[in-house]
């Protein structure tokens, strides 16, 4: 069994989670969250991959050519868009937290009550 893609997934999740756990800056934590999420793209596309198959587009190849799974590709596509929008929302919240409390350090922010 070829496991290399799944090791990559575990590595990306691990690096991102380590960043979130140790970071002392909200912006940096949000970037780490993006890293964690990007592991889902690798996992989705890795699960749906079929050796020797083409992309699921039949514009210039015959219709019954073996192709990789289109469902996980559609999931990855919506994943990307949602991630971008949610990141914007998180960054907006970070801006307002900095404005209100003057710090982006999650340890110091925990001492304030909204």
């Amino acid at each position: 069994m070829q496991v290399f893609p799944f090791i990559v997934v575990a590595w990306i999740i691990g690096v991102g989670l380590y960043g979130i756990a140790t970071s002392r800056n909200l912006i940096h934590q949000i970037v780490c969250l993006i890293v964690v999420q990007s592991s889902t793209y690798v996992l989705l596309l890795g699960v749906g991959y079929v050796t020797g198959a083409v992309a699921p587009y039949f514009y210039d190849v015959p219709v019954h050519t073996p192709a990789v799974d289109p469902v996980v590709q559609a999931l990855a596509l919506t994943d990307v868009v949602v991630e971008a929008a949610v990141t914007a929302l998180l960054l907006a919240i970070a801006i307002q937290a900095h404005k209100r409390f003057g710090t982006l350090d999650p340890h110091e922010l925990a001492e304030f009550k909204g």
Binding site: M1, F4, P5, G46, V47, G48, Y49, V68, D69, V71
Partner: peptide, 10 residues
Amino acid sequence: GFGNYPGPYG
């Protein structure tokens, strides 16, 4: 395993 996706939907 990587490269032999068996799932029914795709």
